[in-house]
């Protein structure tokens, strides 16, 4: 019933969920960006397991490289800690 592929996918979904939660909760914005990048990396593995290597190749540089970099440049222009 549960194939090794499915088990791996469950693991990566769980990692993604935990880091999505951490990214939402984290007050320090730079840490939140890093958590979000880890979540994206887990998603990239999911795309690979689902058989979409083309998506992985664009997903990894955009969501782990370019998108966090754009957010970091934005954070540099504002405050580093989110105020409630």
């Amino acid at each position: 019933m549960i194939t090794p592929e499915l088990a791996l996918m469950l693991i990566f979904v769980s990692i993604a969920f935990v880091f999505a939660y951490l990214a939402v909760e984290e007050r320090k914005l730079i840490r939140a960006v890093v958590y979000s990048a880890v979540q994206s990396a887990a998603f990239a593995f999911l795309f690979y397991l689902l058989g979409a290597p083309d998506i992985v190749l664009v997903y990894v540089p955009v969501t782990v490289g370019i998108y966090p970099a754009a957010l970091l440049f934005l954070i540099r222009k504002t405050e580093e800690v989110e105020n409630p």
Binding site: L57, P61, A69
Partner: peptide, 20 residues
Amino acid sequence: PGGGFQAGAALAVAPVIVIV
């Protein structure tokens, strides 16, 4: 697997890393 956009996004990481 790959193509122009994927490769462009991959190469664009290089200037970001150099700037940082």
